[in-house]
């Protein structure tokens, strides 16, 4: 799979997960499930920049 395709998949997943988290929060509040989704979301976000050698990690807060 090309890097571009992988990156697109990650970005699309970010969008889906954000929507899913919003939906759960609006109906059931902040749950363990939301925490897990948010965690994956941030892992993807960091993956898009951290493990790319062109970027530094500490910019992320």
């Amino acid at each position: 799979m090309s890097d571009k395709k992988e990156t697109n998949n990650l970005k699309e997943s970010l969008f889906r997960l954000e929507k899913a988290a919003q939906k759960i929060v609006s109906t059931r509040g902040y749950t363990k499930e939301v925490e897990n989704i948010k965690m994956l979301n941030e892992l993807i976000r960091e993956q898009l920049i951290n493990e790319n050698i062109s970027y530094s990690t500490r910019k992320i807060r």
Partner: peptide
């Protein structure tokens, strides 16, 4: 990381 993200990256399987 790779193992965790395989679902998302390869199959769009969140």
């Amino acid at each position: 990381t790779s193992e965790i993200l395989t679902g998302v990256i390869s199959y769009s399987d969140d």
